[in-house]
Computed example of a mutant assay.
Amino acid sequence: MSHVISADLTTERLVLRSWTATDVAAVLDASSASQSSQLAVLRPGLRPEHWAGDFPSDGDRVIAGLLATQPEWLGAFGHRLVVERASGLVVGSIGLFWPPTDGVVELGYGVVESVRGRGYATEATAALTAYALSSPEVHTVQAGVELSNPASVRVLEKASFQRVSADQETARYERR
């Protein structure tokens, strides 16, 4: 059964907008341009004005590469750009690794360094998790986190995730 595709998710301070093929291409092109000054010269204006100065991060580049090979992740339950409502700037990305397996879907998130500490990752995580759990196909949202990243641990805890396992380096969290 497929869940109804929805528009952008809007929170108090953010808009979670689905990635498009154009977004993917822009991130991949910008990544290539940053590695090749020739391309930057050949393609002026490559970097969209609506990106925060430090977007895309390395994680966003990885996601764009995955989305280029997994276009089914571009749907409503896939990956989204995190847009700051006040400025209209793209400040990160968040996503679900759809489709769920036995009712469980994995979540990943990140915001650029320039906006960290404002609660955006928690706000986005709570909103996308609630959206995922609204699907009849999902009963649990999971996320893994490196214990060396206490800010990311706090994001999950503040978004009502519970730790279900841990080893020396990583922990698994879930929300039902």
Rank of each mutant, 00 (worst) to 15 (best):
W51S: 02
Y173T: 02
V90R: 14
L89V: 05
T170L: 03
V62H: 04
R172M: 10
P136V: 06
S114W: 04
P99V: 10
T69G: 12
D102H: 07
T170V: 09
R154I: 00
A166F: 03
V141H: 09
E106R: 14
P48Y: 09
P99K: 12
A7H: 11
R118V: 00
Q162F: 08
V115E: 07
L96R: 13
V15G: 05
V141W: 02
A159S: 11
D23E: 14
G78K: 12
T140S: 11
F97I: 01
L46E: 06
G53R: 11
D167M: 04
T22Q: 13
L9P: 02
E12F: 03
D29Y: 05
A132P: 00
R61Y: 00
E106D: 15
D23M: 09
L89F: 09
Q168T: 13
A64D: 01
V153E: 07
A30N: 07
A171L: 03
I94G: 04
D60P: 00
S160L: 12
D23Q: 11
H3G: 09
K158S: 14
P99E: 12
T170A: 13
R43A: 12
F55H: 11
A166L: 01
D58F: 04
A68D: 12
G110R: 14
L67Y: 08
S165F: 03
G78M: 06
L107Y: 04
A121M: 06
Q35K: 11
V15S: 13
R116T: 13
V115L: 08
L107R: 05
R154W: 01
Q162S: 14
V27P: 02
R175D: 01
E137H: 09
G117Y: 04
S165W: 11
S6A: 15
A40D: 03
P56W: 08
N149S: 12
E146D: 13
G88P: 02
L14K: 07
L14M: 08
S114R: 10
A26E: 10
S134V: 00
V62T: 08
L16A: 07
R175M: 03
G45F: 05
G110T: 07
R17V: 01
H79E: 01
Y131K: 08
Q35F: 02
A76E: 11
V105L: 10
L9H: 07
T22M: 03
V145K: 05
E12M: 03
D58E: 13
A68I: 00
Q35H: 13
G78S: 12
V62Y: 09
D29T: 07
A40I: 00
A132Y: 02
